[in-house]
Amino acid sequence: MSEANTSSEVAVKSEKMRNTILTVLSFVFIIGGGIWILSLFFDFHRYETTNNAQVESYINSITARATGHVSVINFDSHQFIHKGDTLVVLEDEEYKIKVRQAEADLAVAEGNLHSLEQSVITAISNEAASKDKLSGDMADLEKAQKDYERFRNMYADSAVTRNQYDQVVSKLQSTKAYLNAGEKELMASRSVTKQSHTNLEASNATVARKKADLENALLQLSYTYIIAQADGYVGERTISVGELINANQVIATMVLNQKLWVNANFKETQIEKIKLGQEATIVIDALDGKEFKGKVVGFSPATGAKFSMVEPDNSTGNFVKITQRIPVKIDFEASGKELAEVKPGMNVTVEINK
């Protein structure tokens, strides 16, 4: 009987102890929960927070500028490339033929130009000769006119015979005819010279155009080498050797190794308390909550919905008021080395000090 009483007392004490412990733990959990709720309240009061945010970077498309079959590929997926690296080489025999054709056309045009330059020199010389000849004919006419005046007076005084007088008259008339012909010859020479100059200008223009054609052919040939325009990491390689690619075809995308920032989508009701230059804390989910410091540098001029391809239309009458998001740009304050693990597209949580 005594043993039964003792066992009963032990059980009662054990029950009381368990209840006491549960009561203490309950109070601890309630107090801890209250403290946590209060901390959240004070944090919300001190910070504007959003987890609708991602790391952003400039992403370029590497595009072919010529059509051709792929001859050489010098990069692979996810590889780091430097500015000036040759990424792809296209078969270029067709473009080399076009360059040789353009060189031949230029040589022909330059030959025609040299020929026309000689024609201009000849035309100018002929014009000068015609002018000199005309000057001589004018001098002959002046002499013939004086002879005619003298012989006319002498014939009136019967100092010369009729035959002599007729010869002087004939000489005057022939000299006038020569002078008239010389004037027409000079006009023709001037016309030929003018036409030669016009042809020369046209030939110069042709040579300039053929030079431009050659430069364009050389430029097209250079496009058979696809060169990296900046440092960065390429994404997936989608082409293979022997494949035909067309001009303006994207052969790869590249994440530029220049700058990272965060695009944080805050509710429109939060924007009033966010200002340019405010400090921000960036927590990156993929890096086990690693924190980085940042600074607010810009606001979107419109909500994200306004930039969507299909903007919501509430004019049908089925209106539901939805809080809009406004993108806020936040720059990292860390250096490039510190951001080596950060990749564009990672989800982050942003806290901005009010």
Rank of each mutant, 00 (worst) to 15 (best):
I35M: 15
E311C: 00
E127V: 02
D313S: 03
H69C: 00
A66N: 08
N248S: 05
G277S: 04
Q164V: 13
S14V: 09
N216L: 13
T20A: 15
E3N: 11
L339E: 05
N318H: 10
K293Y: 00
T175R: 04
A104N: 12
A156Q: 14
T206H: 02
Q164M: 10
V99I: 06
W261E: 04
G345D: 02
I35C: 13
Q54C: 00
T175L: 01
R18K: 12
G32Q: 10
I282N: 02
V328N: 07
R150T: 15
G136L: 11
N314P: 03
E291G: 01
N347Q: 14
D137Q: 12
N19V: 11
S7P: 02
N257V: 10
V24Q: 01
V70C: 04
A202T: 08
A217K: 03
H45Q: 09
A188S: 14
Y233E: 10
R209F: 07
D105K: 06
Y225H: 15
L244N: 05
F266Q: 07
M138K: 13
N153C: 03
N248V: 13
S115V: 14
K329F: 02
G336A: 13
A109Q: 03
N257T: 09
Q258D: 15
T206P: 00
K275L: 08
S203D: 02
P344G: 07
N52H: 11
T63S: 02
N257P: 01
K176M: 13
M17F: 11
A139N: 15
T281D: 06
